[in-house]
């Protein structure tokens, strides 16, 4: 009995405030890309092709955060045109590096940076996609992991749950057999409170995790901060910055950074 899917599902890729790195991960799947295209129609992906197929779309991958009134409208149109919507990358899931504006006065920046500030329409905060529309799944990371992206598409095609477990980076270090950088070398590491998925890439190169996959499930961040300041020589002002990198709009990281603000 040959196994055939009734129709080829349509995939769309959408960009909001971001660097494009995550959607390019799809093009980076060089060895697997042709096989993926056999099973799914890439219907909207401006980075890859000008050819567009009209919606609705079976699977939308949304990159970037919402930073303008126009984008806050546009994401609703995309949601309406999409059967499943998956936000991809730290911008889309945790506000991105541009969420650093959330802790400052963005109008002041605009007045200093632009010659004609009146042309600039921007929101006071950079927010994740899930703050605006219902999101079916999130792929974390800055950038996302290529194997995770392929697993997502694969599980979608085969109508099965994706193997994207919410274990933390510590678990991935232990699976790989990495020695803990915090215990053996006294290096500060966000691994215990960070969502895995990167296969513990930074500790594998003997540096601490900097949390680019965002907070893990129910993280006890205060206990980690206490250890870093009492035993690993991280001072309070650095603790503010440790949690304000790529996911500063993710609540657990935002709250912990604010707790250390003087």
């Amino acid at each position: 009995m040959p196994f055939a899917r009734p129709t080829k599902p349509k995939l769309a890729v959408w960009k909001f405030a971001s660097c494009d790195g995550c959607q390019l991960s799809l093009l980076d799947c060089e060895d697997e890309l042709l096989a993926v295209c056999e099973h799914i129609t890439i219907a909207n992906f401006p980075e890859a092709s000008r050819a567009r197929v009209d919606g609705p779309y079976d699977l939308s991958l949304v990159e970037g955060s919402i930073t303008t009134p126009h984008d806050a409208e546009r994401i609703h149109r995309i949601r309406r045109a999409s059967k499943y919507l998956v936000s991809i990358g730290a911008c889309a899931t945790g506000g991105g590096i541009q969420a650093l504006r959330n802790f400052q006065d963005v109008q002041e920046f605009v007045s200093v940076v632009y010659a004609r500030p009146e042309y600039i329409q921007t929101l006071a905060k950079s927010t994740p996609i899930a703050d605006h529309v219902y999101v079916d799944f999130e792929l974390r990371g800055c950038p996302i992991s290529k194997p995770q992206l392929l697993e997502l598409v694969n599980s979608f095609l085969n109508k099965r749950p994706p193997n994207l477990p919410n274990r933390n980076v510590c678990a991935e270090c232990k699976l790989r057999g990495n020695t803990c950088v915090m215990v053996a070398e006294g290096k500060p590491c966000l691994g215990p409170v960070t969502q895995g998925g990167c296969d513990a890439i930074c500790p594998s190169f003997r540096r601490g995790c900097y949390g680019c996959f965002g907070p893990g499930e129910a993280p006890n961040i205060a206990a980690l901060s206490a250890r870093m300041s009492e035993h690993l020589g991280v001072d309070t002002s650095d603790l503010v910055r440790v949690y304000r990198t790529y996911n500063s709009a993710a609540d657990p990281f935002r709250k912990e950074s604010e707790r250390h603000e003087s």
């Binding site: 694969n154 099965r160 933390n168 510590c170 232990k174 215990p192 006890n220 206990a223």
Partner: peptide, 22 residues
């Protein structure tokens, strides 16, 4: 931290999960 390092470093802890791939 509920990070699980103790269980994964423990020489007797044996909990596992299964993952189905296609």
């Amino acid at each position: 931290l509920a990070c699980g390092n103790c269980t994964l470093a423990c020489p007797t802890c044996f909990c596992s999960t299964v993952e189905d791939h296609t």
